[in-house]
Write a protein that binds this DNA or RNA. Structure first.
Lengths: 153, 153
DNA sequence: ACAAATGTCTATTTATTCTATAGACATTAA
DNA sequence: TTAATGTCTATAGAATAAATAGACATTTGT
C-alpha cells in the first residue's frame, strides 16, 4: 500500500509536469494547490531532488521544477525514492539486504519464490509507465467526463 | 510489503499443507516448529478459520487442519484475509471503500488509474498461484540444492 | 553591501499501525 | 469430571508514518 508520503510526491510531480521547466514552482504554492502539509512536502521534494528527479533554484524567483521530461520519469523510479523499492518482501530488495527474520533458508523459501513473481509483475507495470502516461490518463478521463456532461446538456 | 503476520500465516499454512488433514496440529506445536509467538499465531489461525481456509477441532486430540486441498487455496485468498486485500491504494479495495483522503476526484485520479494496472498485475499472479504451488517450488529448490551437494561429493 | 525571498537541514512531537502478551472462557474427548 | 485444547476480549509495547518547529544557507535584485 502506497504511503501518504508517496501519494503526496506523485501529486506534486503531476502538478510540476504541467508546468514549463523554466518556471519554478514554490514549495508553498505546491503545498497549497495540492493540499499537502508544507513542511512535509519540503522533505518529500528534497528527497526527489537528491534522487535526481527534481531540480531547484534558491532565492527570489526560485522553486522546484522537473529535472527531465515527464515521459522520461517512470512511476517506478518515483516510488523507489519514497518507499525504498516495491518488493513485497524485504529479502527481494536489491541492495541493503538484511533478509527476513522469519526465514531460515533463503534459497528454498517458498514465500520468496512466489513473491519474486509478484515483484516481476509489479515491475513490468511501474517501469514502463511514466509520469507523462499518468497525466495523460487523467486528462483522458477528464475529457470523457466533459463529453458526458455535454451530451447531457 | 507483507506484514510479519501474513508471513507467519503463510508459514503455518505451508506446514499444515504437509500434514494429512485427519491429523490436527496443535497451535503450540505450530508455534514451536515455525518459531511464531504462540498467542500471535492463535489470532492468525482464528482469522484463517473464520475465512474458511482452516478448520479446527476442540478438546483433546484437537488442533488445526486445512479446510481444503492446498491446490485449491490461492495465495491471494490468504493475503486477503491477513491484509484485507492487496490493493496498492485504499480506493481500489472493493468493499469497505472509504476512498483516499488526498483525492478530490475519484474518477479522474491518475494515481488510481495507474495503480489499477498494478493491482491487476498482482492479482494475476496471486489468484493463479496456490499453496500447493508454493510448497512445490520450495521442494524443487530443496531438491536442486541436494543435487548440488551430491555432485560435490 | 544589504535585504528579502527562497530552499536546506536537524530535531522533535504526535498519531497510527503492527507485534506481542495476558488471562478468562467454552468445548470436547476420554 | 477432568484434562486438553481452541476461542475471545483486552491491553501493552514497539515500530513506523505523519506532521511540525525553527535555525541556517544561498541567491537575486536593488
Amino acid at each position: 500500500m502506497l504511503s501518504k508520503k508517496t501519494k503526496y510526491a506523485l501529486k506534486a510531480l503531476i502538478n510540476l509536469a504541467g508546468q514549463p521547466p523554466d518556471e519554478p514552482v514554490l514549495i508553498s504554492e505546491l503545498a497549497r494547490l495540492e493540499q499537502i502539509p508544507r513542511k512535509f512536502l519540503e522533505a518529500i521534494l528534497l528527497s526527489l531532488k537528491n534522487a535526481g528527479l527534481l531540480q531547484s533554484k534558491i532565492g527570489k524567483g526560485g522553486g522546484y521544477f522537473l529535472a527531465r521530461e515527464p515521459r522520461n520519469i517512470s512511476i517506478g523510479s518515483i516510488i523507489k525514492v519514497l518507499e525504498g523499492g516495491y518488493a513485497p518482501v524485504q529479502c527481494l530488495n536489491a541492495s541493503n539486504n538484511p533478509g527476513c527474520d522469519e526465514c531460515n533458508d533463503f534459497s528454498t523459501c517458498g514465500i520468496r519464490l512466489v513473491m519474486t513473481d509478484v515483484m516481476q509483475a509489479i515491475s513490468s507495470v511501474l517501469e514502463t509507465t511514466t509520469l507523462a502516461d499518468m497525466v495523460e490518463r487523467s486528462d483522458n478521463a477528464k475529457q470523457a467526463n466533459a463529453n458526458v456532461v455535454d451530451f447531457n446538456i
